[in-house]
């Protein structure tokens, strides 16, 4: 499994420029919002958590389409289906690498983009915490979408349509947790733990469902 991890990291660093495209897209989304909403610091601070999450969600979708597509096209996927390594484990590692080059850098750069939205202090900390535990779920849900659409010539749009609705619960609870810290009377921990729970659920469920879809769809 270490071999697959190293290969996937190498590939994403050498071919797509690693985390940079996702980060640039994230920056574009987050920077446009203050222009659209207007220079009202109070309003911006209210929606800042939501903006970071929408940016992260959209940026995470970018690399998903290629999670299995490249391997399907060059025959590597055939070898992975034949091999003795359990397929769900392969999917798990690939999802983990996807998160390492999207979700993780998006989380770490949140303080920088928080400036544009007037997000600082405890709410910023809460936003980073929810991004850290919540973005893995996008990668694991996304793996299922990528597996289902792997044999379609233009699966990218369908992939987004499949994945975005499944991410709605994560976004609701994550943004709820950020809002709790920025002065609402709601508590922080229940929504935060919900986000963690959803991530763990999909980390287990996603690889098995994606593996099933790959076996069915790739003959």
């Amino acid at each position: 499994m270490k071999a697959l991890l190293i290969r996937e990291l190498r590939l994403s660093l050498r071919s797509g420029g690693g985390a940079i495209p996702a980060l640039l897209f994230y920056a574009a989304v987050v920077i446009v919002i203050p222009f659209a909403v207007g220079p009202d610091p109070i309003l911006l601070a209210t929606i800042a958590g939501a903006c970071l999450w929408i940016g992260a969600l959209l940026a995470s979708l970018l690399g998903l389409e290629r999670m299995f597509r490249d391997d399907a096209e060059d025959g590597s996927l055939d070898q992975m289906l034949i091999g003795q390594t359990p397929l769900p484990l392969v999917v798990f590692v690939k999802s983990l690498v996807h998160w390492t080059v999207t979700g993780l850098p998006l989380t770490l750069t949140a303080p920088l983009f928080g400036i544009f939205l007037g997000l600082e202090g405890a709410p910023l900390g809460a936003a980073m915490a929810t991004l850290a535990v919540g973005t893995p779920s996008i990668s694991f849900i996304g793996a299922v979408g990528a597996a289902v659409t792997v044999s379609m010539a233009r699966g990218g749009l369908l992939l987004s349509v499949l994945v975005l609705p499944l991410c709605v619960p994560v976004v609701i609870f994550a943004v709820g947790a950020v809002r709790a810290v920025s002065g609402s009377i709601d508590p922080f921990w229940p929504p935060f733990l919900m986000v963690s729970g959803i991530s763990l659920l999909f980390a287990v469920l996603g690889p098995f469902v994606a593996a099933l879809a790959l076996r069915q769809g790739h003959g």
Binding site: R7, R10, L11, G75, S76, D78
Partner: peptide, 10 residues
Amino acid sequence: GHENAMKGNL
């Protein structure tokens, strides 16, 4: 198979 299962940039 017909494909070589190799990555061009490795």
